[in-house]
């Protein structure tokens, strides 16, 4: 587990450095069990930083979504580092961003948080509805939920996010400073969930996805929450050429989800930010995981594990499979 005092001390030390612009971490949320992103600009801000199983957001997104506004004449652009706290999965986003040369390694200062799993907020809210303020802590194999003076223990498995049940990299793969002791891998990924969907008949598959896609509101939360979706001019919303229309119907929604998932083929690092952001509960990870599985099986490639390897689709092997070609 991460020691909060140590975390705050390190954050204070880091933000006091001349070459660091901000530290991105977590702070308590405004209601229920939530935690929310914190942007530490001066040492005093660091006192509200926390880390708990409620810290579900992937902060690597903030490194890449910052607008690059024109700098007034006579001023230099702020080239100081961004320090960011990352869990195991989030660290893979940074590796993948580095692999794609989204920024230089010098641009970020990575504060690694060895993570024993975070909760699925939907599961928590279903189990403890209408709690206006509460806390979640992980103790051994139990989540301790405290609110309104009561304390309840729940088995870890019941509230753990699905992505954590398959997590193979709980300890960050890249870090400049580690905020806790290494966590040993406690889960493995057998893709049984993808296989269940793969085994459905074609009609069942379309019926399944048609229902999910048709309720999509096209709010673009899945795209914007994704640490890998940082194109300034996104294919999903560009007007010329207009790949998919802004109108919302099953055709455009399907096109949207195919294109979104395809653009993450060989890039998705399984952090689950898209699915967590979706207000309509569309199982977006099921789409991403199909690519993840295929990429691993067909090309023996795992995104976000090695910043030196070339991006999957900008390379090839002469021996790639071609039994589907006429």
């Amino acid at each position: 587990m991460v020691d909060i005092t140590k975390l705050r001390d390190i954050a204070k030390e880091v933000i006091s450095r001349d070459d660091v612009r901000q530290v991105i971490g977590y702070r308590p949320g405004t209601y229920g069990f939530r935690a929310r992103p914190a942007f530490v600009l001066e040492p005093a801000d660091a006192d509200e930083l926390i880390f708990s199983p409620a810290c579900i957001n992937n902060l690597a997104t903030y490194i890449v979504i910052e607008e690059k506004l024109p700098v007034p004449r006579g001023q230099e652009p702020d080239s100081r580092k961004v320090a960011v706290m990352v869990k195991g999965c989030d660290s893979r986003a940074i590796i993948q961003q580095l692999e794609e040369k989204a920024y230089d390694r010098d641009h970020v200062l990575v504060l690694g948080i060895p993570c024993e799993g975070v909760v699925d907020m939907d599961k928590v809210n279903a189990r403890f509805p209408n709690v206006d303020k509460g806390d979640i802590a992980l103790e051994g194999d139990k989540f301790v939920i405290s609110f309104n003076g009561t304390k309840e223990e729940v088995a870890k498995d019941e509230l753990l996010a699905d992505k954590c049940k398959r997590c193979r990299y709980p300890t960050p793969l890249v870090s400049d400073e580690m905020l806790g002791d290494e966590v040993e891998r406690f889960a493995d990924d057998d893709f049984s969930d993808v296989e269940v969907l793969e085994k459905k008949s074609r009609d069942e598959k379309w019926a399944y996805w048609e229902e999910k896609f048709s309720r999509c509101a096209r709010c673009y939360a899945c795209r914007n929450a994704c640490p890998m979706c940082y194109c300034e001019d996104c294919v999903l919303t560009r007007l010329e050429p207009m790949w998919m229309r802004r109108s919302v119907d099953i055709s455009e929604n399907t096109a949207y989800h195919i294109a979104r998932a395809y653009h993450l083929a060989g890039r998705c690092i399984q952090c689950g930010a898209c699915e967590q952001a979706c207000p309509m509960d569309i199982p977006l990870m099921d789409l991403n995981r199909k690519f993840y599985k295929d990429v691993r099986e067909l090309f023996d490639y795992e995104p976000g594990t090695d910043a030196e390897q070339p991006p999957l689709l900008s390379t090839f092997s002469v021996d790639d499979r071609e039994d589907f070609i006429l």
Partner: peptide
């Protein structure tokens, strides 16, 4: 600047 720092720029708040 402070209240928008964590905004992702999605349309959830407005569409809903």
């Amino acid at each position: 600047k402070k209240v928008s720092a964590s905004c992702l720029g999605c349309g959830t708040c407005t569409f809903l």
